[in-house]
Design a protein around this nucleic acid. Structure first.
Length: 467
RNA sequence: GGAGUCGUACCCAAGUGGCCUAAGGGGACGGUCUGCAAAACCGUUUUUUCAUCGGUUCGAAUCCGAUCGACUCCUCCA
């Protein structure tokens, strides 16, 4: 299995720390609003990664956090906690907001057939771990207190910014960052806030530095290490996390444990963009999964759409492109349904079928080349030398990674057709027999308006619900 | 201001020095079938063409340079 590692900027052979096991941490949502489809693209990518690892024989421990505190609207101490802000705007409690959007997120990811992480952990349940981590950083001399907050001093380590390949001198020179007088270095970041800028802050906890709340970055370090150990295999997220969030996680984690590297492989998903650029929560309008559903798309249409592009390339979203994915998936489902009707999955494969299978999994195992894998799938479907029962078995096997729920595709059952529809179909057949085509077409139109299609095949008329 | 990515046929999108006279999907069109349709199947849309102009090379969509255009990051962001 090969994976692109952001740290080395190269595709590397994946080697786990422990044989046949993988520890994988994925940055989860900040639950102050709905996830938009751009956010969800990243979770689809992480799901594909997990499924591919599992297909390669690894037992994956997949940990994802829920950020329900500490994520500010701005850097330093000039921002407001996103949940507190939302609470102020809506009049609901921060806890209600967190619970509501966590629930919405879990619903979205479930409908996209994203496997539930092995561990889902909330930041507010791990305040103690965070405080302990900050304490050990303090003991190691990596912190200072200024303006009431505990800061991490990046000048106490010699490789800050290695993931993003930051050039600290240039950053300082061309700084667009507003200068924070509390910071010794503009890139220093807060580990623990006690600065009571917002007096009515609800989410606060006692700490050795006073009552307050944690900085955003510390939660991922504290929770990932709690569940995966001080050194683990894979850390995922969106590319935007590279220069700040992941950079700071590495800094504080490696400073706290003294172990390097903290994480072996850094994997990042590219953005979904539209004609105006990336979708952003902070710039107003954004598309959620439920908007797509309201437009008549199945969440899996969006999942298929994600699979048509490589995870490290920007993907352009448009309803036109989503329509293509919807059509392709529909056609795939139809094929699966007709295969299921003809055959049951084969238990052994011909050499030819094995070739396709190998090609498919090679594409996925080579840094998740899903578009190529899909091409293999379609070629296999068209190949007459592969018998139907083997095609079906192969499709179901491939779907263990694709996650398009092909196993749940049902052969259409005739008995679910209402009697009045069947009566009309019979009446039409009679009219056709008498060559009364005007009448038969009228009935076909009427059936269509009732939501039923009728197709004439050599075996007689076939009725189906129009979706 | 600094750093970086990308520009592939009607649309989306793989491919990143020679099996490329460029995967796959979608759409459109044509054919088979049908009373007509739909569905299905077959074919065409794709012979030097991969933003443009130069260069390197025996050979480039793939490497280098310039130009134009799009995007991302350096600020919260998946």
């Amino acid at each position: 299995m090969k994976l692109y590692n952001t740290m080395s900027r190269k595709v590397e052979d994946f080697k786990p720390i422990e044989d046949h096991k993988v520890g994988m941490y994925c940055c989860g949502p900040t639950v102050y609003n709905f996830a938009h489809i751009g956010n969800l693209r990243t979770y689809v990518f992480e799901d594909i990664l997990r499924r591919t690892l599992e297909k390669n024989g690894y037992k994956v421990k997949h940990v994802m956090n829920i950020t329900d505190v500490g994520h500010l609207t701005g850097d330093g101490d000039d921002g407001e906690d996103k949940l507190e802000k939302r609470s102020r705007e809506t009049g609901k409690s921060v806890w209600d907001i967190a619970a509501f959007y966590t629930e919405a997120f879990m619903k979205d990811t479930a409908s996209l057939n994203i496997k539930r992480p092995t561990v889902i952990c909330k930041a507010t349940d791990h305040i103690k771990e965070m405080i302990d981590l900050v304490k050990s950083l303090e003991d190691g001399g990596h912190t200072y207190i200024s303006g009431g907050n505990v800061y991490f001093s990046i000048d106490t380590i010699d490789d800050y910014g290695k993931l993003a390949k930051l050039n600290l001198d240039e950053l300082k020179a061309g700084a667009r960052i507003s200068v924070d007088d509390n910071k010794r270095n503009p890139k220093d970041f807060v580990l623990w806030f006690t600065n009571g800028k917002f007096k009515d802050q609800v989410m606060v906890w006692p700490s050795p530095w006073g009552v307050g709340y944690p900085g955003w970055h510390i939660e991922c370090s504290a929770m990932s290490m709690k569940y995966l150990g001080r050194h683990f295999d894979i850390h995922c997220g969106g590319i935007d996390a590279i220069p700040v969030h992941h950079t700071n996680e590495i800094a504080q984690s490696e400073a706290a444990t003294g172990e390097k590297p903290w994480v072996n492989y850094w994997c990042h998903g590219e953005f979904l963009i539209n004609d105006k650029g990336k979708m952003s929560k902070s710039s107003g309008e954004f598309l959620t999964l439920s908007v797509l559903v309201d437009h008549g798309y199945d969440p899996l249409d969006y999942r298929y759409f994600c699979l048509t592009g490589h995870y490290r390339s920007q993907l352009k979203f448009s309803y036109e492109a989503l329509d293509h994915a919807k059509s392709a998936r529909q056609s795939l489902n139809d094929k699966v349904a007709s295969l299921k009707k003809e055959a049951s999955p084969a238990s052994s494969f011909s050499e030819k079928a094995c070739g396709y299978r190998q090609e498919f999994f090679d594409a996925m195992s080579n840094d998740l080349h899903a578009p190529q894998a899909l091409a293999v799938l379609w070629s296999m479907l068209k190949d007459e030398e592969v018998p139907d029962d083997q095609k079906l078995a192969l499709l179901l096997d491939m779907d263990s990674i694709l996650g398009l729920n092909l196993d749940k595709v049902e052969v259409k059952k005739e008995e679910s057709i209402p009697q009045n529809v069947l009566d009309l179909v019979n009446e039409r057949a009679e009219a056709k027999k008498n060559k009364d085509f005007k009448r038969s077409d009228e009935i076909r139109d009427r059936l269509a308006s009732m939501g039923w299609s009728v197709k004439d095949t050599p075996q007689g008329p076939v009725v189906a619900k129009i979706l």
